[in-house]
């Protein structure tokens, strides 16, 4: 047996299982197309889809859309993080603020971000505006909620320890309260980025004329379903890697956290 680290051993063990499950689905799909069980105009075969995806990448025509969607999601997400963490912090430290702010948040939270598409197009017009707004709105809630509960759950013993060691307000906030809440905040950011990616695609379906969301919508109109599905797969792959990157950042930023990632 090879002398590998346990981490790689489990990876080696899991990889065939993953590959097998992908292969089963793909081969079933391909066979169904070949045998004519499926209308390939509506659901093209995997070979066709992956060929199209390859062409889109090689010719570079999809790269512009990827870049556009990523830059939109970045800007909206950074805005949401700044607003969410700030409001979460203020609300959790002041009882009065909490009483004023939480009713507003409770009434906004149940509205799905998608429901804001029409009004955001009216407000910002077709372009980047609706995407920024929707991403920011969607990502705000998980970030805010996690920051809020993270700060409330700071162990009083840590605050007392800091105070008796002579910590003043600034040190208490930046060296004790925020780092203590960091595992929660990071979890909020991770969920928030997932929602943000979802929101940018939704916004681009109708509120933009570029980006991956627009690209799949446009190809629907021209009945190029292989491009629609290739776009969807791209969206899925990027979303997957975003989550992985957040997990890596999480491990780097909160190495002391015993919470499972």
């Amino acid at each position: 047996m090879l002398n590998l680290k346990p981490k790689y051993k489990t990876l080696l063990k899991q990889t065939p299982q993953k590959v097998i499950s992908y292969l089963i689905v793909l081969s079933f799909w391909q066979t169904a197309c070949n045998l004519g069980w499926i209308n390939t105009t509506l659901l093209p075969s995997p070979v066709n889809v992956f060929h199209t995806l390859f062409q889109l990448v090689v010719t570079g025509s999809i790269l512009g859309d990827i870049f556009t969607s990523l830059s939109r999601v970045s800007i909206g997400f950074i805005l949401a993080s700044l607003i969410g963490i700030t409001i979460g912090f203020v609300v959790s430290t002041s009882e009065r603020c909490k009483n004023y702010v939480s009713p507003i948040i409770e009434i906004l939270r149940p509205i799905p971000p998608v429901a804001f598409v029409p009004i955001s197009i009216l407000w910002f017009g077709i372009g980047n505006g609706p995407s920024y707004f929707l991403v920011c709105f969607g990502a705000f809630f998980p970030i805010f909620t996690n920051t809020f509960f993270g700060i409330l759950s700071v162990n009083p013993i840590h605050k007392n320890a800091a105070l008796c060691l002579g910590a003043r307000r600034k040190l208490l906030i930046f060296d004790v309260i925020l780092p203590a809440a960091m595992p929660y905040i990071m979890a909020g950011l991770k969920t928030g980025l997932g929602v943000a990616w979802f929101c940018v695609i939704v916004a681009e379906l109708v509120g933009a004329q570029s980006g991956l969301g627009y690209m799949i919508q446009l190809n629907r109109l021209t009945l190029q379903s292989e491009k629609v599905i290739a776009g969807m797969i791209t969206i899925g792959i990027i979303g997957y890697f975003m989550n992985r990157i957040m997990t890596i950042i999480q491990k780097k930023l909160v190495p002391w956290s015993t919470k499972a990632f």
Binding site: I157, A161, A162, G166, L171, A180
Partner: peptide, 25 residues
């Protein structure tokens, strides 16, 4: 200064960072 039964160490700081905390203050 207080020594707590449950230590009260800052989990996000190294041992050195913990000891330096009061000096930083």
């Amino acid at each position: 200064t207080v020594i707590f039964q449950e230590y009260g160490l800052f989990d996000w700081k190294t041992v050195l960072g913990n000891i330096e905390f009061g000096l930083k203050a």
